[in-house]
Design a protein around this nucleic acid. Structure first.
Lengths: 263, 263
DNA sequence: AAGGGAACTTCCGTGGAGCGGAAGGAAGGG
DNA sequence: CCCTTCCTTCCGCTCCACGGAAGTTCCCTT
């Protein structure tokens, strides 16, 4: 009998993570019965597991509900790739922000998404869908396109083979068009995005290249009306190059960024 | 938080967390046998658990070892207290950094420690022991003392009853002295720290007060020779007050619609 | 080439821990 | 006062997590 790969019985760890990830819907605080509903687990099971999670501070019991706990935050500070990258990148992003006073992002590729690892913005953060730790489809964002353009052929073709997700009416859904754009990005070292991630915003991104592969990318995001792309593009590219150099010298040899796609 | 009963037998969740926390020793990459050694768990057990952790991206299998995975990072982005606080605080820290060009921290209290949730620094980050997600004893840091001064009596007395940890020769170990200092901090709204956390560095911190209690504190850290404390103190206090006001007003309308865009 | 060691992977019988239905509180409110 | 909703506790059954042991790979030494 062939073993189905997709779904076995969820074990304890699976269930715990289902509980933790139940918070991704934007709700900060969930009650026990909410968790049971969202995870589709029996109430008594959730109750038991939640006890253990609270003990480890992965959850915090607030009056009338549970929240994700600070233990998660602490653990995340130890994640090496992001940690190293962020520490190195922060000053460069800082400079970029100070020079332009526009929202600045740093992101890495994770499967078919970009995951934002740093974000700097002023007092008014105009409803961007990005969030540190959040994901967006690669093809819909400047950072994502920069990452994709400078990934391995394998990764790129696999991404292009699947239907492209759109998150605004302007998001690219035609693989051929995206492929053309990626070629252009490879030629220029700059990725542009126009309202493909957020209506009313456009952005320019540059890859952070280590040995020809993008280990990260950074971007500046501005309202569409600004018409400042040329200067911003130069600034982003400069910062990205600076960070790349810093990463190269900072550590001599760590990990040639392979990694499988779509686990 | 009374944890009287010493856990007899670690369950699956305990073991998984022991594995994850095995990375807190500064090592980024650990091999299976390293993990088994550090966690004092049988090799085959670690092997099995690691499999599950990798599936959930809490661990990443690198050639020759394992690293903490990006899944942790993503989850941490959803931790509400820190998330809300950080988003609100970032612009203020930003301003503070731009005004002073010195290293800026934001921290919250967690038990007897301060946990840093944000840190902004220039290109030269002079070996400070702080790290986003990292902990230090409350009494050894400016932020910690600011937090402690404006915590409940309960918290404060409990902290003072236990022996004070020292991390430099200048760290305060006399409870009476610390108590006196806390009183002063309560009076002035400013906490100073002189080489108590890092030899050669001093810092000034101010609490972020919501309803009279410090929900966080921010600080500026400079080399001891700088003699710029008066101006820095004013700047820190101003920023902290600004953030406190922001938090108060932000909290009135629970959560502006935005949240998650497009699922 | 053979031997030794270290690290990783797979196997498998056993027992206890995880499981979840059900019943028992605890609030609220109509 | 009953009904609903939510949380907590209980308990017997089942099953899967457990880890010792054997197997495999790789590298280093002799």
């Amino acid at each position: 009998m062939e073993r189905k790969e997709g779904r076995d019985q969820p074990n304890m760890l699976d269930k715990c993570l289902r509980i933790l990830r139940a918070f991704d819907g934007g709700d900060q605080q969930l009650r026990l019965s909410d968790l049971a509903r969202r995870t589709a687990l029996p109430l008594s099971t959730v109750h038991r597991l939640v006890g253990g999670l609270v003990e480890h501070r992965l959850l915090a019991q607030d009056d009338g509900g549970y929240q994700l706990g600070i233990g998660l935050f602490e653990l995340s500070g130890l994640v090496p790739v992001e940690q190293e990258l962020r520490v190195a990148a922060r000053p460069f992003l800082q400079d970029l922000f100070m020079a332009t006073h526009e929202t600045v992002h740093l992101g890495v590729r994770e499967g078919a998404d970009v995951v934002y690892v740093e974000k700097i913005h002023g007092h008014s953060d105009l409803g961007l869908p990005s969030r540190v730790g959040g994901r967006l489809p690669l093809g819909c964002t400047g950072i994502g396109k920069a990452l994709l353009a400078f990934s391995s052929n394998e990764v790129r073709t696999e991404y292009l083979e699947r239907p492209l997700r759109a998150i605004t009416p302007h998001s690219i859904v035609d693989p051929a068009r995206l492929e053309r754009e990626l070629a252009e990005i490879r030629a220029t070292g700059l990725a542009f995005e126009r309202e493909e991630a957020t209506v009313g915003r456009e952005c320019v991104a540059a890859p952070v290249l280590v040995q020809g592969v993008a280990v990260a990318a950074m971007s500046i995001s501005v309202p569409v009306s600004a018409y400042r792309m040329p200067q911003l593009a130069a600034a982003v590219k400069t910062s990205a190059l600076g960070l790349a150099r810093q990463l190269r010298t900072g550590r001599e040899h760590r990990r040639p960024p392979g990694g499988e796609m779509f686990g």
